[in-house]
Design a protein around this nucleic acid. Structure first.
Lengths: 244, 244
DNA sequence: CGCTGCTTTGAGCTAGCTCAAAACCTGTGG
DNA sequence: CCACAGGTTTTGAGCTAGCTCAAAGCAGCG
């Protein structure tokens, strides 16, 4: 293991497979072509075709779809170490939009880069496909949440999942994490109204379970939250919910 | 094009790329190891690990997750030509269960078979990855439906999507299709109660839009339905909604 | 120091839920 | 050929989680 600071993606994939020096080198090479994007300006618009993918190295992004009537559904949030639009490299049109929530740094990855990397290091390919599968498993879990959990469990589950994901890249633990989302973001993700989100957050706070305030999520009673949400992190395919 | 009857998967993939004789042969070879499964008995249980994937050649299957409180969320239905558990070949544990809705016929595909096929015919690999991406796009659209569409639009959208998918394997058209689902299946898929599903179906019927009855979906006013659901089949990445 | 964007609270309203009970359909065994 | 059983559909009647509309605090920033 090198001392130089790792990219979040490297850190994340290392939780899945131990990568060799050579593989790490290929992975780091994918991070050339770094770019900065300002908050609020979409990276990719719904319906745009072709496209490269990005590796997010800092900041948060949300991927969403808007409907004709203007309502929007956030499909997922991306945190450092996540891919943006890995699927749209394959599918002819990108079927959703990406909006940086804060100013972000991301590395552009062309389809060809990816194919070359895959050919050079099959194990790396496996690791990246693992990440892609995991992303899909998260979408499925999200679907279950919206379809069958009531608002408080849905909220708790969601914030716990993000916590686990951040823990994987050392940006969070059982105490909590920094979180730039607004209550509107939560509403669009959870299929609730922003007003109801606010009430649910108050409920959770008053129940002594967690606090969402000033860009920070604090878990006041982690176990209690896990129980309320019936949060079973198996689908994240990590060793445990939070290592610490 | 050969006259011998094609498998539904072949038919589906051919809509995406024109496959050569050699590729078609590899594809048909994946269909050895055919098996029959009775209705109602799960193929794969949630949490089971490793697993092969299956190619569904006849009948319908649903993939779902059950929660601790017993409620269940259907993630998707599979129709002939669809893969079952393609993702669980990669992910360490399969994160949902598959239940045959009627007696089905499916071909077991081992991870190794798939890798061999991919190595032999890269274009086939691309086509299969296309199918996998499309599956994910469908889950995303499903998420949008549950999160942001009200019951009638959600129902209409869902039944239209299935119609388009069936059209791709010549099992449906703008008139309608045979459908073995019960109203309970619809409820579990759409995040509604079975009773409400019934009322919505009545509404749609009385509005002259469509009829769901006796294992058959009939589109009485296809365009009207499309409008109600704001159904834009772009995410299915097919040429059009229904070719005929 | 006055926007602008976010959070908080109040007050009704409604889509979709639960409980309850018929009516139906289909296959099975007498 | 009938009757019964189990699954499915249909309808009624109230209830509630989450919605909409409205408005007031609050904080950061140009």
């Amino acid at each position: 293991m090198i001392l130089a600071k790792q990219s979040p993606l490297t850190r994340k994939l290392s939780a899945f497979v131990a990568l060799s020096e050579a593989e790490l080198a290929v992975l780091e090479r994918l991070h050339q072509r770094r770019r900065i994007f300002a908050a609020g300006r979409d990276l990719v618009h719904q319906g745009q075709s072709d496209q490269a993918a990005y590796i997010l190295s800092s900041g948060w992004v949300c991927s969403y779809k808007v409907q004709a009537d203007g309502t929007r559904q956030v499909v997922d949030f991306q945190v450092p170490g996540d891919f943006l639009g890995l699927r749209s490299v394959l599918l002819r049109t990108s079927d959703h939009s990406f909006e940086p929530i804060v100013t972000i740094e991301a590395a552009e990855v062309l389809k060809s880069d990816l194919l070359v990397a895959f050919a050079q290091t099959p194990r790396l390919a496996t690791a990246i496909l693992w990440a892609a599968s995991r992303d899909e498993a998260m979408v499925v879990e999200h679907l279950v949440g919206i379809g069958r959990r009531d608002a408080d469990a849905r909220m708790a589950h969601f914030l716990l999942e993000i916590g686990s994901r951040l823990a994987l890249v050392a940006m969070g633990n059982k105490e909590g994490y920094a979180c730039p989302l607004t209550q509107y973001h939560l509403a669009d993700a959870l299929g609730l109204s922003a007003i109801h989100v606010n009430r649910i957050l108050r409920q959770l706070r008053e129940a002594g379970l967690m606090t969402f305030r000033k860009g920070h999520v604090t878990f006041d009673d982690y176990e209690g939250l896990v129980k309320l949400a019936e949060f079973d992190p198996a689908y994240l395919d990590q060793t445990g919910p939070l290592l610490k």
